[in-house]
Amino acid sequence: RTRTSFTAEQLYRLEMEFQRCQYVVGRERTELARQLNLSETQVKVWFQNRRTKQKK
């Protein structure tokens, strides 16, 4: 599997969503992935990694 390189715009949007809600599921995840031109899996994993980073 190749590592995803997020654009600055994608990271900004993901961070904004994370500040709003640390868990994104269902339709929200589908819509966010579509808007950012990413897969739902990429969005899901980004949120998982971001929550892990916050715990440290």
Rank of each mutant, 00 (worst) to 15 (best):
R20N: 15
E40K: 02
G26E: 07
E28R: 03
E15P: 00
L11N: 15
Q10S: 02
S39P: 13
R3Y: 14
T52Q: 09
V25H: 12
Q48Y: 06
R50Q: 10
F18E: 00
K55G: 13
T2C: 00
S5A: 13
K56G: 15
T7Q: 03
K56N: 14
R20V: 09
S5T: 14
F6A: 03
L11G: 07
E15A: 01
R20P: 00
E15I: 01
T30L: 04
K53Y: 15
C21K: 09
V25C: 14
S39H: 06
E31H: 04
L36V: 09
A33E: 00
T2G: 13
R34C: 05
Q35I: 07
V24S: 11
K56I: 12
R27E: 15
A8D: 14
F47P: 01
Q48M: 10
E15H: 00
G26M: 05
T4Y: 13
E28H: 06
E40M: 01
L11T: 09
L38W: 01
T7W: 00
F18N: 02
S5R: 03
E17D: 02
E15G: 01
N49M: 04
E40T: 06
A8M: 10
E28D: 11
Q19L: 12
K44I: 05
V45W: 13
L38H: 01
N49T: 14
R51T: 08
F6K: 04
R20L: 08
T7M: 04
T52Y: 09
T30K: 08
R51W: 07
V25L: 10
R13M: 12
Y12W: 12
Q22C: 11
S5E: 15
T41F: 10
E40V: 06
T2F: 06
R51N: 10
R34N: 11
K55F: 08
Q19F: 06
Q19A: 12
L32P: 02
T30M: 08
Q19W: 08
A33N: 01
L11V: 11
N37L: 06
R3I: 15
K55V: 14
Q22W: 05
T41Q: 15
E9S: 05
T30V: 11
S5K: 02
F47T: 01
L32E: 01
T2A: 08
L11C: 12
R13E: 04
L36S: 02
Q48C: 11
E17M: 07
G26R: 06
S39N: 13
Q22F: 03
E40S: 07
V43I: 09
M16G: 10
K44F: 04
R50T: 05
Q22M: 07
W46F: 05
T30G: 08
K44T: 14
C21G: 09
Q22R: 06
R51K: 05
Q42T: 15
W46M: 00
K53A: 13
V45P: 03
A8G: 08
E31S: 05
K53P: 10
R13V: 06
